[in-house]
């Protein structure tokens, strides 16, 4: 029985990255797309923490805190814009937002 090592965390983070990417590309609801983006950012966070443990320095953990702060700011701005959109268009579905196209 092997203990849980860096590789296991990497597999988990790749899985999260793929789930997040799949969500962004296939979901219609913009709120769910924002949640999928959070999954991708958290995949990176898991990487950072796992590597931080593996190489035994604290830089990665500090980086992860910055990523969390940025993710929060992004979610706040994203929901703000979404509310502005909802006031005008009464929809949160990405495929109904189609005024601009070539």
């Amino acid at each position: 029985m092997h203990p849980i090592g860096t590789v296991h965390y990497l597999v988990l983070s790749v899985a999260l990255l793929l789930i997040g990417t799949f969500g962004v590309l296939t979901r219609r609801n913009i709120v769910v797309i924002l949640m999928s983006i959070e999954l991708i950012l958290n995949a990176a966070n898991i990487n950072l923490i796992a590597f931080s443990r593996a190489v035994d320095n604290v830089n990665g953990q500090v980086f992860a805190i910055f990523v969390i702060a940025v993710a929060v700011a992004e979610a706040a701005v994203g929901l703000g814009i979404l509310i502005a959109l909802f006031r005008n268009k009464e929809t949160v579905l990405a495929d109904e937002v189609d005024l601009l196209k070539w």
Binding site: V24, L34, N47, N88, V97
Partner: peptide, 28 residues
């Protein structure tokens, strides 16, 4: 303008996600 912002935000945040994932590997 709303629509432009939401599209820019979703794709921009998506791309930052990839960027930060790449950064985490470079750190590793």
């Amino acid at each position: 303008s709303n629509e432009a912002a939401i599209k820019y935000l979703l794709l921009g945040a998506f791309s930052s996600g990839f960027l930060i994932y790449g950064f985490s590997l470079l750190y590793g």
